[in-house]
Design a protein around this nucleic acid. Structure first.
Length: 290
DNA sequence: CGATGTCAAGTTGCA
DNA sequence: TGCAACTTGACATCG
């Protein structure tokens, strides 16, 4: 049996996370928005439980400007009880969550300031999960970063900067193949050096292909990077939106196509990346009889 | 009050 | 050489 999850936004709820503009930032405004967002997160966890969804990605926008020095509000202390409460709920429901720092979090940049900001962003994401009291099976997913005209050198920089991260961050970090720079083989090579779990993304592999081995071949290879302490192996699954640019996620999941891969999987956590989010999760679960 | 242009950050690749 | 795309909706301002 496999778990199926979705990212951030919940179609089955009539609310979404709020944010604010840099020029309007203030402690009071931040406090209001974070309070709203954390209440929504708690309700989302309940919604997922009620719909038998046990895998969920928490939006990086949950704390606006979470790693920026524009954010001077001490949300870590102010909301520590609320975060603990949400974390307890996640644990009691036996759910697994993750976070996915975005395109600006690049630890292999040649620019020192970019690396510094990226590390701050990892600290923010990691603190958020630490404050909820969640263990290291609840992961942070990152890509390798830029190539800067020299892949070998850029990989070396990733490896050496990774080694400098604090141990609570390192225990959560997993790496993923991306759609233009680092294919699954690159990511596996890096994983073999630093011993980090690998999330296999099928659509990225389709676009930024290394060889013609099947999804299941690479899923099995990536599976070897997951230790017991990392929890169940996790993959990202999405389908190309027909007629849209390469890599665009489809509006919904073609369940028959999904089933062909699903039937080959055993005990894998599948994060769907699809526009209709929990709707597709529920449809997929029904289709495979979970 | 509804419409619409804009939004913190980095890198790549295409006009 | 400058700017859109990434991903995307929600904010904020304008009429």
């Amino acid at each position: 049996m496999n778990k199926i999850g979705y990212a951030c936004i919940t179609m089955g709820m009539d609310r979404n996370y709020r944010t604010l503009r840099a020029k309007n930032i203030s402690d009071d405004y931040l406090k209001d928005i974070i309070e709203y967002n954390l209440n929504l997160l708690e309700d989302t966890i309940d919604y997922n439980y009620n719909n038998n969804i046990f895998l969920y990605r928490i939006s990086s926008d949950i704390i606006p400007f979470g790693s920026s020095k524009l954010n001077t509000f001490d949300w870590r202390s102010y909301f520590s009880n609320k975060l603990k409460k949400i974390g307890n709920k996640i644990k009691n429901y036996n759910m697994r969550v993750s976070m996915h720092p975005g395109q600006y979090t690049i630890i292999n940049s040649p620019r020192e300031d970019v690396v510094k900001n990226s590390i701050n962003d990892l600290i923010y994401h990691c603190d958020f999960m630490d404050l909820m009291g969640l263990d290291c099976t609840n992961k942070m997913i990152i890509h390798i970063g830029g190539v800067y005209g020299n892949k070998e050198e850029s990989i070396r920089r990733f490896v050496s900067n990774y080694k400098l991260l604090s141990s609570n961050i390192k225990c959560r970090v997993v790496i993923e193949n991306d759609d233009k720079s680092y294919n699954i083989n690159d990511v596996m090579e890096i994983s073999n050096i630093i011993n980090v779990p690998v999330v296999y993304d099928n659509l990225h592999n389709e676009i930024n292909n290394y060889d013609h081995n099947s999804d299941i071949y690479w899923i099995n290879i990536a599976g070897k990077t997951w230790d017991k302490k990392d929890g169940i192996q996790k993959i990202h699954y999405s389908q190309q939106a027909i007629g849209k640019k390469k890599g665009s996620h489809s509006d919904t999941i073609d369940v028959d196509v999904f089933k062909k891969l699903y039937n080959k999987l055993n005990n894998i956590d599948i994060m769907l990346e699809v526009k209709d989010k929990d709707i597709s999760v529920i449809r997929c679960m029904k289709a495979v009889g979970e």
